[in-house]
Simulated assay, not measured.
Amino acid sequence: MENVILIIHLILSVGLIGVVLLQRSEGGGMGLGGGGGGAVTGRQAATAMTKVTWVLAIAFLCTSVSLTVIAARNAAGGSVVDLLPPDSATEEVLPSLPSGESLIPPTSDDAPVAPPRSE
């Protein structure tokens, strides 16, 4: 059922793109203007194209919502993190923190700041 709705959704998306591209420009869009001529002229044709666009858009939204509902229904109830065993999850995610003494910057008695020169 999900595959059928997905195929219908894809067909509707391609059809919606095609119908929007076939519509007559109202002008001003990216400097292309809405000059005379074109595939669709006249008010009746524009109204028919508008109705087809609305029908395809509503059908597209309905298939989008139905695909979301189906995906939510098929989803597992938990998180991926819940699938990890409890012992290994804490060791891998939270490594041991360094002690307070190792956070102090080195003094001059410790290792040299720069490595020795090789001559």
Score class of each variant (00 low, 15 high):
residue 67 L to M: 03
residue 26 E to L: 12
residue 81 V to E: 11
residue 113 V to H: 03
residue 41 T to L: 08
residue 88 S to I: 15
residue 55 V to I: 09
residue 22 L to T: 10
residue 51 K to H: 00
residue 73 R to T: 12
residue 8 I to F: 01
residue 87 D to Q: 10
residue 10 L to E: 11
residue 114 A to C: 10
residue 65 V to K: 05
residue 98 P to A: 02
residue 25 S to M: 08
residue 76 A to G: 15
residue 75 A to D: 08
residue 107 T to M: 03
residue 57 A to R: 07
residue 92 E to F: 12
residue 17 I to G: 07
residue 62 C to A: 15
residue 71 A to G: 01
residue 9 H to F: 13
residue 106 P to E: 13
residue 13 S to L: 09
residue 20 V to K: 11
residue 69 V to W: 00
residue 61 L to F: 08
residue 1 M to Y: 11
residue 107 T to C: 01
residue 9 H to V: 04
residue 34 G to M: 05
residue 113 V to I: 15
residue 70 I to A: 12
residue 90 T to E: 11
residue 36 G to M: 09
residue 92 E to T: 07
residue 30 M to P: 00
residue 17 I to Y: 05
residue 113 V to L: 15
residue 93 V to G: 00
residue 65 V to G: 06
residue 89 A to N: 02
residue 109 D to T: 05
residue 56 L to P: 01
residue 16 L to P: 04
residue 86 P to H: 09
residue 24 R to P: 01
residue 106 P to K: 08
residue 13 S to K: 01
residue 105 P to N: 12
residue 26 E to S: 12
residue 86 P to D: 05
residue 47 T to G: 04
residue 16 L to I: 00
residue 14 V to H: 02
residue 104 I to T: 13
residue 70 I to C: 04
residue 39 A to P: 00
residue 55 V to R: 06
residue 25 S to C: 08
residue 59 A to V: 03
residue 118 S to N: 03
residue 52 V to A: 15
residue 7 I to Y: 08
residue 3 N to T: 09
residue 21 L to E: 03
residue 50 T to H: 08
residue 106 P to V: 08
residue 86 P to C: 04
residue 114 A to N: 06
residue 33 G to E: 09
residue 106 P to Y: 09
residue 20 V to M: 14
residue 59 A to G: 14
residue 28 G to K: 12
residue 85 P to G: 13
residue 44 Q to I: 14
residue 1 M to S: 15
residue 50 T to D: 10
residue 42 G to F: 08
residue 114 A to S: 04
residue 88 S to C: 10
residue 90 T to S: 15
residue 27 G to H: 02
residue 37 G to L: 14
residue 40 V to G: 05
residue 4 V to N: 09
residue 83 L to E: 15
residue 113 V to G: 02
residue 44 Q to Y: 07
residue 88 S to Q: 14
residue 73 R to A: 12
residue 63 T to C: 13
residue 60 F to A: 09
residue 109 D to F: 00
residue 69 V to S: 06
residue 66 S to P: 01
residue 19 V to E: 03
residue 94 L to W: 09
residue 83 L to I: 02
residue 97 L to A: 06
residue 30 M to G: 02
residue 16 L to M: 06
residue 97 L to W: 03
residue 102 S to Q: 15
residue 29 G to I: 10
residue 84 L to S: 09
residue 111 A to R: 09
residue 1 M to I: 05
residue 11 I to F: 04
residue 10 L to K: 12
residue 69 V to Y: 00
residue 23 Q to D: 02
residue 26 E to M: 07
residue 104 I to Y: 08
residue 11 I to Y: 01
residue 68 T to L: 14
residue 49 M to W: 01
residue 16 L to H: 00
residue 62 C to F: 07
residue 90 T to Q: 11
residue 81 V to L: 12
residue 87 D to P: 03
residue 112 P to D: 12
residue 3 N to E: 15
residue 97 L to E: 13
residue 2 E to L: 04
residue 98 P to T: 07
residue 15 G to L: 14
residue 20 V to Q: 06
residue 8 I to Y: 03
residue 82 D to M: 06
residue 71 A to P: 01
residue 16 L to D: 07
residue 40 V to W: 05
residue 17 I to P: 03
residue 79 S to E: 14
residue 89 A to D: 04
residue 82 D to C: 00
residue 99 S to G: 11
residue 76 A to F: 07
residue 46 A to W: 03
residue 91 E to S: 14
residue 70 I to T: 12
residue 61 L to M: 14
residue 99 S to A: 10
residue 53 T to P: 01
residue 18 G to P: 06
residue 30 M to W: 14
